[in-house]
């Protein structure tokens, strides 16, 4: 399984990833790191309390990493959460809607993580 195959499987933007990381090796390195980064866990924890600061911090961190990796769909979804909890902007979604967004993000992340695991096995 190649990195490009993986991106096709997880709906990632391979071209974008290459534009940023230049090499498959580097993309691969950080995809594997993403799995153990704890970013999604932080976001889920913040989602439990819906504490605005925690939500913003965790979403902002995840948005940056996923954008660097060309995981554009995931990055866009997390970006919506970032803007929702950005200090100084008014909330646009209800708590229930935010939780639904979180579930959507977790599901997409899970699909990405599964794909990465599969890729990891294929290169071992």
């Amino acid at each position: 399984m190649t990195v490009e195959d993986l991106y096709a499987q997880i709906d990632g933007n391979y071209a974008h990833a290459v534009q940023i990381m230049k090499k498959d090796k580097m993309i691969s390195k950080y995809l594997l790191k993403l799995k153990n980064s704890g970013l999604i866990e932080n976001l889920q924890a913040a989602g439990e309390s819906l504490d605005p600061v925690a939500m913003f911090e965790s979403a902002h961190a995840m948005k940056g990493v996923t954008a660097n990796l060309g995981l554009d769909t995931l990055s866009d979804k997390v970006s919506a959460l970032t803007e929702e909890f950005r200090q100084g902007s008014s909330r646009k979604y209800s708590d229930d809607e935010v939780k639904a967004m979180l579930e959507d993000i977790c599901a997409l992340y899970q699909k990405t993580a599964d794909g990465i695991s599969e890729y990891e096995q294929s290169i071992q």
Binding site: I20, M21, K22, K33, S37, A61, G64
Partner: peptide
């Protein structure tokens, strides 16, 4: 850069 992975990516790019 506060996010570790982002910092690593940036540093790797600089290393190139």
């Amino acid at each position: 850069e506060d996010v570790e992975i982002n910092a690593e990516i940036l540093m790797d790019l600089l290393e190139i």
